[in-house]
């Protein structure tokens, strides 16, 4: 499972930082900073999904590594 973050879309709602602090930090202005590159560790899959499902700006996306053909 890969995670990506669109900084242009982020408006600093901070929902990801609250729900998945292992995956997101915030900068001094309160915009999200993705802490992992590429693969999300297995134990954080649920938190990654929460971050995606609560971002009002659709700034976070998850993709399966091997999408079904």
């Amino acid at each position: 499972m890969k995670i990506s973050f669109n900084r242009e879309a982020c408006q600093g709602h901070n929902r990801c930082y609250l729900l998945a602090p292992e995956l997101f930090d915030v900068d001094d202005e309160g915009y999200a900073v993705l802490l992992v590159t590429g693969d999300v560790p297995e134990q954080l899959h649920a938190k990654a999904q929460l971050a995606v499902d609560n971002c009002p700006e659709y700034a976070i996306t998850l993709t399966e590594e091997n999408p079904p053909a």
Partner: peptide, 23 residues
């Protein structure tokens, strides 16, 4: 509720400045 992209603090560039304080 686990899926909650609510817009209580607005959307876009005018997202409530005080949202963290309010929360």
């Amino acid at each position: 509720r686990e899926k909650n992209r609510h817009a209580a603090f607005g959307l876009g560039i005018h997202r409530c400045l005080g949202s963290n304080l309010a929360r």
